[in-house]
Design a binder for these strands. Structure first.
Length: 554
DNA sequence: AGCTTGAGCGCC
DNA sequence: AAAAGGCGCTCAAGCT
């Protein structure tokens, strides 16, 4: 059963029950309090709550202490269906551009203004959009039922991801300000009272100025720094630590130390801590499906880029533990399953797929296995990685064939799709790849540029199918885990997800439940594999650590 | 004054 | 050791 929610979460709300056939009952009009009461009373029947945008509706429920188990996010669904190859010729695809298209655009910034007054925005009626999405899926099912099932799964998984993202933001990740502050003081010196450069950084800046004989140098200014380095006789073209590391000069050591400290200060310094950590919790803003491939992004806080340096500040509460689980070599396992490549799946039967490649005699060392596999996934064109490719192709023709085919498709300027049906964008109007290459009268330089553009786009589509399908697996994994964690709750508390990092999850749990959580994480991974790939015998191996501090994992 | 761009570096 | 796919975020510089 579906209940479509329209209106505004803190104003007036209409609930419209829609049955599986898409027939809507009479809408019920409620005020904000009535809305909360209605959700509370209907939730035990496990309806699927349908709303325009989870980020708009769910926070109000969470603040009222109300979780929901299942939902349908129309904004996320619209974006998938609008761009999917599978929906060509369907009514949703052919509909004139409307506010759902705007809201579904990658920026997503306009979502709030668009939906604040919900149904009153032209063409934004969620009941109509929900029915249209159902019709679209039905139409896909008529020609390809399996394709429609996968798209339906994708919409459900992403909707659940959106619930999880809001729940993680609401609860936050346990974060010890004192540990973080101690780390900052150790690395940078005491917090400057009125902003400005901390003492240890300033001392390093002085060393740099002395070594370069440039008393007024601001090491934060890339052009100034580059000029000063050249004046000191160093042959450099940039100021990255990559370039600098090769050089021998008294300035290099303090300069590298300065860059490291400046990075820590600006990305995760005191200002960051004040902005993002409250009451011992870091509240990240995830953007579900924020990346074209379907991976998540963040908006502020940088939860997906927490540097190793500060992970020690993530500490379980007293009497609680952190269970950190990481899917090992996820993308190779994904392409093995997509291509139904028995040989690669067998190599992944080892806990370490790279070691499995060595044991199978494909390559001689684990390092070679890793670099070869990354080359296959990213489209290496040179170096060790490219040299090892033929061995992989011989050993795993199906899996490698799948990513090669995705690359060729992209080079022609065509779309590729993930396992569940998210399609890659079509190249922009200024893309000159395939067409320009095929014209014989193109100037040589244009021709070269066109070929380069085609190859670049091919590397993107090659990676898209693996990265995007891995993201789908990960959302199914998390959705299953979320459900299992609920069942583990007891009087000691309830374990809950606190971090998601592409192929890694963290659960904050009462310590006595840590083993059960580890079991749940494993079972959820197995479930996700079966949900996507049925009985194809591919293992999704996990590395699981129960720790009190994030920096103890791995 | 406010916006975009590029360099740089952190993550998977 | 480097390279290849996807990002976010910050700063300074360059632009309007």
């Amino acid at each position: 059963m579906f209940i479509v929610i329209a209106g505004s979460p803190r104003g007036s709300v209409t609930l419209t029950e829609v049955d599986a056939a898409g027939v809507a009952a009479a809408p019920v009009l409620l005020d904000a309090a009535g809305f909360l009461a209605a959700v509370a009373s209907r939730e035990p029947a496990r309806p699927r709550w349908v709303w325009s945008d989870t980020t708009l509706w769910y926070p109000a429920l969470l603040e009222a202490g109300q979780r929901v188990e299942r939902s349908q996010d129309l904004r996320l669904g619209h974006r998938v269906l609008k761009l999917s190859e599978a929906t060509r010729g369907t009514p949703l695809r052919d509909a004139p551009a409307n506010s759902w298209d705007d809201a579904a655009s990658p920026a997503g910034d306009h979502a709030n203004t668009l939906f604040d007054d919900g149904a009153s925005a032209p063409g934004a009626d969620p009941v109509a959009e929900f029915v249209l999405q159902r019709q679209t899926l039905d139409e896909v099912a008529r020609s390809d039922p399996a394709r429609a099932r996968r798209l339906t799964l994708l919409l459900a998984a992403e909707s659940c991801g959106a619930l999880i993202a809001e729940e993680m933001r609401f609860h936050g990740m346990p974060w010890r300000r004192d540990v973080h502050a101690a780390k900052l003081e150790e690395a940078l010196g005491p917090r400057p009272q009125f902003g400005g450069r901390p003492a240890r950084l300033e001392a390093l800046a002085d060393q740099i100025r002395a070594a370069l004989d440039a008393p007024a140098l601001n090491p934060d200014s890339q052009p100034d720094l580059l000029r000063a380095l050249k004046r000191a006789g160093l042959a450099v073209t940039g100021t990255s630590k990559w370039d600098l590391r090769e050089l021998r000069h008294p300035v290099i050591e303090p300069l590298l130390a300065y860059k490291k400290g400046a990075r820590l200060l600006s990305a995760n310094g005191w200002v960051w801590m004040d902005a993002w950590v409250q009451d011992g919790r870091f509240h990240p803003e995830y953007v579900v499906g924020g990346v074209v491939t379907g991976r998540w992004a963040t908006r502020g806080g940088g939860a997906l880029q927490l540097p190793a340096e500060v992970r020690g500040a993530v500490r379980a509460d007293e009497g609680w533990s952190l269970v950190v689980a990481d899917a090992a070599q996820l993308e190779p396992r994904i392409i093995a399953a997509m291509a139904r490549d028995e040989a690669m799946a067998a190599a992944g039967r080892e806990r370490d797929l790279y070691q499995g490649l060595v044991d199978a005699g494909v390559v001689d060392t684990r390092a070679h296995a890793k670099v070869a596999m990354l080359g296959a996934l990213y489209g290496a064109t040179s170096g060790e990685s490219a040299r090892l490719m033929p061995r992989l192709t011989r050993a795993f023709p199906r899996a490698i064939g799948l990513v090669e085919a995705a690359a060729r498709t992209g080079e022609r300027g065509e779309q590729v799709s993930t396992w569940l049906g998210r399609s890659s964008p079509v190249p922009g109007d200024d893309w000159e790849g395939a067409d320009a290459v095929s014209t014989t009268d193109a100037a040589p330089t244009e021709d070269r540029r066109a070929r380069q553009a085609a190859r670049d786009w091919g590397r993107f589509t090659r990676n898209f199918v693996a990265q995007g399908t891995a993201a789908e697996w990960a959302m199914c994994w998390m959705a299953g885990l979320r459900k299992r964690l609920r069942l583990l709750a007891d009087e000691g508390g309830e374990p809950h997800l606190v971090l998601f990092l592409h192929d890694e999850v963290m659960v904050h749990t009462p310590a006595h439940l840590a083993d059960a959580v580890g079991h749940a994480v494993t079972e959820a991974a197995n479930d996700a594999g079966r949900l996507l790939f049925g009985d194809f015998p591919v293992d999704f191996a996990l590395t699981i650590a129960t720790v009190s501090s994030y920096d103890e994992a791995k």
